[in-house]
């Protein structure tokens, strides 16, 4: 089994291995097997679209956490022209589970903030698997208030299993740090666009997720608790995670239907990790468009309509 493929992706992995093997043979010989390769590639496309057309919510939550899924910094490199990372909460430390800084989108300066999970084992540990402690949220808050002072729009990228449940995090006020961000973001006088790029885990996601426009990538998830957590509480058994994922409606299309999300961005065939650059460009054009739209509003209208939007949650959705 190829560890870079999920269980339901294994048929795709097998086929791709076959294509690679044929290519090797083709390089060694004068035999013309390109027809055969094209045939197999078409078969692969058909197979991938068949598998991905019928993904269950539980499978989608696996794609959202795929080991090869692009992370925030992968997108930043493609979407923005410049990026200067800014560190630290000015009180305690610099939480590397959240990255923030000033970037340029086309010619527009923007404040970019997001969770970063880490790719290698070492980096995963350094970034605490994208689970922030209070100083991460406080850094985000500091940067967002700076953005407001300088009239710079804010773009956030959500990809976290949740806020870190640790002794130190509790001692330093994890709850307060999250609550504070929710309150501050509700009144910031600049446009805020949030995008769930992978896993939108609970309060740790929402802490940088209050916004004027909420995007979700097609195979990202957003939920109040992980399917495993929900299952272990309500079903008394984490093995019911698939049922919990179904019941909670954690997928982008379902949340769009419920009116909780504004836009779902289509992913490349087989998921964002199959073509990160294409995904980044789709995201980029969406961000440019949403920003242009939001910049038309007068500040007071923007803040007022964000407030109305927040007050409507739960009423008609």
């Amino acid at each position: 089994m190829n560890p870079n493929y999920l269980d339901f992706e294994q048929p795709i992995a097998d086929l791709e291995a076959k294509i690679d093997a044929l290519r090797m043979v083709g390089n060694d010989n004068d035999l013309n097997i390109s027809d055969e390769i094209i045939k197999l590639q078409n078969k692969n496309l058909a197979l991938t679209s068949r598998i991905f057309a019928t993904l269950t919510p539980a499978q989608i939550s696996q794609v959202a956490r795929h080991p090869q899924r692009p992370y925030m910094l992968d997108y930043i490199a493609v979407i923005f022209d410049e990026f200067d990372e800014l560190h630290g909460d000015r009180h305690y430390g610099d939480d590397r589970a959240i990255v923030g800084g000033i970037a340029r989108l086309a010619d527009q300066p923007v404040m970019v903030i997001g969770h970063q999970k880490g790719r290698s084992v070492k980096e995963k540990v350094a970034r605490n698997f994208g689970m922030s402690r209070p100083e991460g949220y406080r850094k985000a808050c500091r940067l967002m208030e700076m953005a407001e002072r300088f009239h710079i729009p804010i773009m956030t990228f959500i990809d976290t299993p949740g806020a870190y449940p640790g002794i130190d995090a509790e001692e330093r006020g994890q709850s307060e740090a999250i609550a504070w961000n929710l309150a501050v973001m509700s009144r910031l006088k600049v446009p805020i666009i949030a995008t769930v790029i992978g896993e939108g885990g609970s309060g740790g996601a929402l802490a940088i997720g209050v916004c004027d426009h909420l995007n979700m990538l097609q195979y990202s998830t957003y939920s109040v608790i992980s399917p495993e957590g929900c299952a272990s509480i309500l079903w008394k058994n984490a093995a019911y995670a698939a049922d919990a994922a179904n019941a909670m409606g954690i997928t982008a299309p379902r949340l769009l239907e419920l009116g909780l999300v504004d836009q779902v961005l289509q992913e490349p065939l087989g998921g964002a990790h199959r073509d990160p650059v294409l995904m980044a460009n789709t995201l980029k054009s969406s961000l440019v468009e949403s920003l242009q739209n939001l910049l038309q509003y007068a500040t007071s209208d923007l803040v007022q309509s964000r407030y109305q939007r927040l007050m409507a949650f739960g009423l008609n959705s």
């Binding site: 973001m185 929402l206 909670m248 409606g249 419920l258 739960g314």
Partner: peptide
């Protein structure tokens, strides 16, 4: 939990 994301958004 039974109100899923709707309940999360009540925090905001």
């Amino acid at each position: 939990m039974q109100e899923a994301l709707i309940s999360l958004f009540q925090m905001a």
